[in-house]
């Protein structure tokens, strides 16, 4: 036994700790896998859509034009990010189990939590990366469109001899408010947060469900319910429940189903309202809370899971 390969005592007996490096390895493998599955093809679809929405229709009013561009592109971003988060999460975990890849991973000194976190971070990196690219594309198109529309409007006013400095300033102000502002990036951030929460829900479900289809369907149901949570609360709880009971019911509902309406700032961004810093902080905090709780529950379920 003298030439046994590893030093016996030292590493075998110390507890295996959480390791960011290991999580990163798992996350990068996930990203590589997803990228090579050509999942990023949706970026191309998005760019086409953005260009189409920006230049294809010609609405007379510049305000409407910019509105349309923002609502179409942000709406599709939201859908893309949620669909990709849910589908790839729901595919990856059961696939690892079916292929017995999970056996080879977990028979290395890899705590199950690291594996889960690695998968989640991998999917989120992919979504985040995609959103950054699309944010850039969208910003560029919006900026181009904005300056074009402004010049058009000024030219028209000059023709009609209405180009008093005040009028021009007013048009500039309208176009600038509807055009490229920080709000756009906050909207994209909110989209990312919502996709993150929904992805974590999908991860939780796929750690207990045995089929991909089940995970996908239930996650989408939860997503839909999550958007209407405020409605449900109003509808069911207000009239007939006392204060405590209604609060408890609200809490239960909020725990089972994330209140996704919290992240809906896209509409106000589309209509050109300013997003206050406080709202951004709140959103981020709520998302972090949801992710932490769901990940913890997922861990509890996954640790007990028989593979």
């Amino acid at each position: 036994m003298s030439d046994a390969p590893t030093s016996p005592n030292t590493e075998a007996q110390t507890r295996v700790r959480f390791s960011p490096r290991r999580v990163w390895t798992l996350a990068m493998a996930t990203v590589t896998q997803l990228v090579r599955m050509k999942i990023l093809a949706f970026l191309v679809v998005f760019c086409l859509l953005a260009v189409g929405a920006g230049f294809a229709f010609s609405v007379i009013n510049p305000e409407q034009q910019l509105n349309l561009l923002k609502s179409v592109t942000l709406g599709s971003l939201q859908i893309f990010s949620i669909v990709i988060g849910v589908v790839s999460t729901a595919l990856l975990l059961p696939k690892d189990m079916e292929d017995r890849t999970l056996y080879t991973i977990l028979s290395k000194p890899v705590p199950r939590f690291d594996y889960l976190l690695g998968k989640l971070i991998g999917v989120l990196l992919l979504i985040g990366g995609g959103l950054i690219v699309m944010d850039a594309v969208l910003s560029l198109i919006l900026w181009l469109r904005q300056s074009m529309l402004f010049e058009d409007a000024v030219a028209r006013m000059q023709m009609e001899k209405l180009d008093s400095p005040e009028a021009v300033a007013q048009v500039r102000e309208i176009v600038a408010r509807q055009g490229l502002t920080w709000n756009l990036h906050w909207a994209v951030w909110a989209i990312f947060l919502k996709a993150t929460v929904v992805t974590t829900v999908a991860l939780l479900l796929s750690s207990i469900a045995s089929s991909t289809l089940f995970t996908i369907v239930i996650t989408f149901c939860i997503t839909i319910i999550g958007h209407g949570e405020a409605l449900i609360r109003e509808f069911f709880f207000q009239p007939n429940l006392s204060g405590m009971a209604s609060r408890a019911a609200t809490l239960v509902l909020a725990v089972i189903c994330p209140d996704l309406a919290q992240f809906d700032i896209v509409d106000s961004v589309v209509s050109g309202e300013i997003v206050p810093w406080g709202a951004v902080y709140d959103m981020t905090g709520i998302a972090a809370l949801y992710v932490t709780v769901y990940l913890f529950v997922t861990h509890l379920l996954f640790v007990e899971k028989e593979l």
Binding site: A12, R15, T104, S107, P109, V110, P111
Partner: peptide
Amino acid sequence: VASRHSVGFLP
């Protein structure tokens, strides 16, 4: 998990 340092598994 530490027991897995010294083992290699082929499923």
